[in-house]
Design a protein around this nucleic acid. Structure first.
Lengths: 254, 254
DNA sequence: TCACACCCTCAGAATCATCTCAGCGCCGTT
DNA sequence: AACGGCGCTGAGATGATTCTGAGGGTGTGA
């Protein structure tokens, strides 16, 4: 296991100016909750985890989060019921307005989710794409926090002359549109969210490929290679730079 | 935690210069009407709720709203009939022009949609995404306030040389009228509402087919195929482009 | 009742992203 | 300068995804 990069320098302030949003993840499967926790922390959220409905309700009362990611199938009190109780908490505005992102398996979906009826504001079907989950989390937080009038899917990610719009899934470099595959797109998105920060190989693997990648593989290198070919202009210095023994950075100057 | 913005300013004044728009929600399911009420009020609308058709008609006569969100399946007088009576109210301009956003479950829709002609200005399938609903509400209000004088149900959706009128359910391409089935129509409408935006397979399924589609099916692909055959001109680049691993986009250029 | 339109399912075929592999070259170190 | 490790790249293999035509079921209107 590659050790964490020793350097303390370059802590990335991911979203400049944005206050740390607090997210409660409720799932009894450690692999999922762990994955979410790490990922969301990486994105700059503060994260708590509960592994059953009762604990979740306790934690919510104790310290209401800005958003809850709630699995439908959890012990003690199931997700549907948790949502219902929260919505029923007429007393507290903070509670009854708490955005809930429901996490469900596909089979369950059919029976149970009559959409948002139960009190969820949005839901996502397992297995989900990490990028999609992030997008929904952002959308829910945006909706609840700022009732700002600027709608439309959030501001595009940019770096140097690269622009990426998650919603429309378009990427441009110097105004010229670029086609990317899913892997390339996710990888680039990860870099764009953490510019100038060295991302370790394993971090990238986890962000883009998810938990399940045992064994050795050099997929990452291959995709990095393709991505470079897609976005880098000849003559220009590399944007995605290799940090030997550690990982890669998105950086402008040499 | 991002606390609620301290300022009360920035209420979404959807229709510039217009006073707070007044919306009547008609639905007998408290979970849905409650959800809508809260959400819409949060957005800065004034909201009334009726839980059956008769009450709705009374309230409309009493105080005509700027927009009605109308569930199809409601007690006393069903949504269809409510819409019909409103449209039939020859006497009052305010009534016959009242924008109606119909709320339906997909199963119901399939049967009845053919009779929708002219009754509703738009419809949305349960379960809907909140953002989507908001967008349509805004669109309808904008429309109705914009063209005060000209009757005609709503501005058509357009893209490139495609034109679609929801109300009359007509579609033209380059001036030439095109026949579409219900599924094709819904699918195209979804694209037209989100041009240049990649829509995931599951989003499309949900919007067009509704909740009840577990299991694997390739209906979407089939309908996409048919739709392409209907609207795409030979020699021209595709308008509906597939984005492998993600979904489809309505996009003009390559 | 018949004919027709529509919608879904299915299976085969085509297409394409992704992954694996193996060889090569660069880089830092000895 | 030689060496070893690490990263890069091109060439397939592989499997997933998407497309298409055909067929059956169902409901509607004549």
């Amino acid at each position: 296991m590659q050790s964490v990069p020793p350097t303390t320098a370059g802590m990335a302030t991911t979203t400049p100016g944005a206050a740390l949003a607090h997210i409660l993840v409720v799932d009894d499967e450690p692999s999922i909750s762990g994955f979410l926790r790490r990922g969301l922390i990486f994105e700059g959220y503060s994260v708590d985890v509960a592994d059953n409905g009762r604990a979740a309700l306790d934690m919510i009362l104790d310290d209401p989060p800005d958003l809850m990611i709630l699995d439908l199938m959890i012990p003690e009190i199931d997700g549907m019921e948790v949502a219902r109780r929260i919505r029923a908490a007429e007393g507290s505005d903070a509670l009854s307005r708490l955005p809930i992102l429901m996490l469900t398996a596909r089979d369950t979906l059919a029976d149970r989710i009559s959409g948002l009826d139960g009190g969820a504001d949005d839901y996502i079907v397992k297995p989900f794409e990490y990028e999609e989950l992030l997008a929904r989390v952002r959308a829910l937080l945006r909706r609840s926090s700022a009732q700002d009038t600027s709608h439309q899917a959030g501001a595009p990610l940019t770096f140097a002359d690269i622009t990426m719009e998650i919603g429309s899934r378009t990427v441009t470099r110097a105004g010229r549109s670029i086609e990317l595959t899913v892997r390339e797109f996710d990888l680039l998105a990860t870099f764009l969210r953490h510019p100038n920060q060295v991302l370790t190989r394993s971090t990238l693997m986890q962000r883009v490929w998810g938990e399940d990648f045992f064994g050795e593989s050099n997929v990452l290198e291959v995709v990095i290679g393709n991505l470079r070919r897609s976005i880098e202009l000849d003559g220009m210095p590399r944007l995605i730079q290799t940090v030997r023994g550690v990982g890669y950075v998105l950086r402008q100057n040499a």
